[in-house]
Amino acid sequence: MKLLLFKQRWGHEGTFADAAKQVLDAGFHGIEGPLPTDPTERAEFISVLRDNDLRYIAEISTTGYATPDPGSTVDDHLEAFKRILDSSLEAEPLFFSSMAGNDLWVFRDSVRFLTEAYEIVQDRGVRLGFETHRSRTLFHPVITRELLKEAPPIEMTLDFSHWCVVTERLVLDQLPDVLDLCAERALHIQPRIGYDQGPQVPDPRAPEYSEAVEAHLRWWKHVWAGQRARGFDTITMTPEFGPDGYLHLEPYTQKPVANLWELNSWTGHLLQKEFQQWAQQPSA
């Protein structure tokens, strides 16, 4: 097996060429994020990907970005899902990842959305992971478990950091059945490190957050083992420490407590080291 690491477009303030240079300098393999909607920017982005031989994971947000538009219906989300997926095919993504649905829907509406979105994915002949994201359909581990019993066999993009803050604890240590289910459905992993009071520790290098780092490493390795058992020859991960309230800032000055790209590149290099050691172990 091999590990492919991606840089997230979210939080990048430079040019597409700058992003590509960071990817290559860090030993990463591609970029994840939404395809630009502006035709000129879109063409430039695709050109940068191809010129630098970078892989691409296309991101779909069904209304809004991290949070859904207020009052948006299942039909609104399905329309956005289909439209963005179809328009992103131009960039020939490796696969898709989607912040989809709405945590305020009743259970039957969430089942309907996942069922019809899955049918769209199957019809296009592509692969897509539905993300475990706050404010979205898979926002809570127990609700996700119940939804997966009713919905078709969707694949998932796992960002366990959201579940840590939603439940105010390193929750998957208490839900081994949900962790097993995640390992059975995982397509992709977004390895941000969450803790009981937030989706992003201020700095994963700091010793006071070692418990959270170790917990996430345990969970990711469990998922890797599940993917290996399912025949995956490649693991994909996008370190996703981000801005917009995730990155901690000093009061008054608003000075960031850490450099965003340093956090993501450090996480990527930690994953490379851990993956190499894990991959040398005999298969379960």
Results as ranks from 00 to 15, higher is better:
Pro68Arg: 03
Arg218Val: 11
Ser61His: 15
Phe275Ser: 02
Ala91Lys: 01
Gly231Val: 13
Gln190Pro: 04
Cys164Lys: 02
Pro239Glu: 02
Ile193Glu: 15
Arg145Glu: 11
Gly242His: 12
Leu187Met: 05
His269Cys: 13
Phe113Thr: 05
Asn102Gln: 05
Tyr56Thr: 03
Ile193Lys: 10
Phe45Gly: 08
Asp177Leu: 08
Ala212Arg: 02
Thr167Leu: 06
Gly30Tyr: 01
Val111Lys: 10
Arg127Tyr: 12
Pro68Gly: 12
Asp69Thr: 05
Phe28Lys: 00
Gln22Ile: 15
Tyr195Thr: 00
Ser135Ile: 03
Thr167Trp: 01
Leu170Tyr: 00
Glu59His: 10
His216Tyr: 01
Thr137His: 07
Glu155Gln: 14
Glu262Gln: 12
Glu208Lys: 14
Thr236Glu: 11
Gln276Pro: 05
Gln174Pro: 06
Cys164Asn: 10
His269Arg: 15
Thr144His: 01
Phe6Arg: 15
Pro153Gly: 07
Val257Gln: 00
Glu211Leu: 09
Ala186Lys: 04
Ser283Thr: 04
Ser97His: 05
Pro68Ser: 06
Glu184His: 12
Ser161Gly: 13
Glu41Ala: 14
Leu260Asp: 12
Arg145Tyr: 03
Asn259Gly: 14
Trp261Ile: 02
Arg192Lys: 03
Phe96Ala: 02
Pro176Ser: 04
Glu250Gln: 08
Glu184Lys: 15
Glu41Pro: 13
Thr238Met: 11
Asp69Cys: 04
Phe16Glu: 06
Leu179Asn: 03
Pro282Cys: 08
Ile189Thr: 09
Asp123Tyr: 00
Trp224Asn: 03
Pro70Ser: 07
Arg42Glu: 06
Ser210Thr: 14
Ala19Glu: 15
Pro36Gln: 14
Asp244Ile: 13
Thr253Asp: 05
Pro204His: 08
Lys7Val: 05
